[in-house]
Amino acid sequence: MRLIGFAGWSGAGKTTLLTRVIPRLTGRGLRVSTIKHAHHRFDLDQPGKDSYEHRAAGASQVLISSAHRWALMTELRGAPEPDLRFLLSRLAPVDLVLVEGFKRDPVPKIEVHRAANGKPWLHPDDPAVVALAADAPPPGRGRALPWVGLDDVEGVAEFVLRFAVGVETVPWPS
């Protein structure tokens, strides 16, 4: 599976960057899927909607479908959070999967960094970081990595095309 992650601290601009990069990739004919890690409790449903009421009543899974999309919601109900490998296995085949978050997973990733956040860089301690997208050049310490400006959306898209699309499979550590 061809994939590349976008990792960084909250507020660095990962979602904003991805929503600007995705159209550049799909505009070149690639089929793209994403997986986003949520660090907090989230809910796609609203009280009063049938699917919400099904889950509230105790259904383990609710599949909702229309002429435009379908979604499968699974309640963990105390089970451990699924890992990235499991989640990837649930996706239909596409040309490229972009992963947002999962910063501790050993997949190739672009570190997204915003200096104003005052958070430490990930790349000095994460050998899976293959490039940096940041609003300022990285400090001199650590490995030398390709650096693209955080607002250089075309540059990030080009890096993703060269790096991720040229990779047939991503090795997963045992």
Rank of each mutant, 00 (worst) to 15 (best):
L3S: 04
I4C: 02
G5P: 01
G5A: 04
A7D: 08
G8N: 12
S10P: 02
S10D: 03
A12E: 11
T15M: 09
T15D: 08
L17K: 06
L18S: 12
L18N: 11
R20H: 12
R20F: 03
R20E: 12
I22T: 11
P23W: 07
R24N: 11
R24T: 07
L25Y: 05
T26P: 08
G27L: 04
R28P: 04
G29H: 08
L30F: 08
R31Q: 15
V32N: 05
S33E: 03
S33M: 01
H37W: 09
H37Q: 15
A38D: 15
H40V: 13
R41F: 08
F42C: 01
D43C: 09
D43M: 10
D45L: 03
D45S: 05
D45I: 00
Q46K: 15
G48H: 04
D50I: 05
S51I: 01
S51P: 05
R55T: 09
A57N: 13
A57V: 11
A57F: 13
A59T: 11
S60W: 07
Q61S: 14
V62I: 15
V62A: 06
L63D: 00
I64N: 00
A67K: 10
R69E: 01
R69F: 00
R69A: 04
A71W: 00
A71P: 00
L72K: 00
T74P: 02
R77Y: 02
G78C: 14
G78M: 14
P80A: 13
E81D: 14
E81V: 11
D83G: 15
D83W: 07
L84A: 09
S89D: 14
R90S: 03
L91W: 06
L91H: 08
L91M: 06
L91T: 09
A92S: 13
P93L: 06
L98A: 02
V99Y: 01
V99I: 15
E100P: 04
F102I: 05
K103P: 11
D105M: 12
V107Y: 14
P108I: 04
I110T: 08
I110W: 07
E111A: 03
E111F: 02
E111K: 02
E111V: 02
V112D: 10
H113P: 02
H113A: 05
R114E: 07
K119P: 00
P124A: 03
D125C: 01
D125P: 00
D126P: 03
D126L: 10
P127H: 05
P127D: 11
P127A: 11
A128C: 07
V129N: 06
L132M: 06
A133V: 07
A133M: 10
A133Q: 02
D135S: 02
P138I: 09
P138F: 04
P138M: 08
G140H: 03
R141P: 00
R141A: 10
G142E: 06
A144R: 14
L145S: 14
L145F: 12
W147P: 01
W147E: 12
W147H: 13
G149T: 03
G149A: 15
L150V: 06
D151C: 01
G155P: 12
G155D: 09
G155S: 11
G155C: 12
V156L: 10
E158I: 07
E158W: 08
F159Q: 10
V160D: 12
L161A: 15
F163Y: 15
F163W: 14
A164V: 00
A164R: 07
V165E: 07
G166T: 02
V167L: 15
E168D: 15
T169R: 14
T169N: 07
P173N: 06
P173D: 12
S174L: 14
S174Q: 14
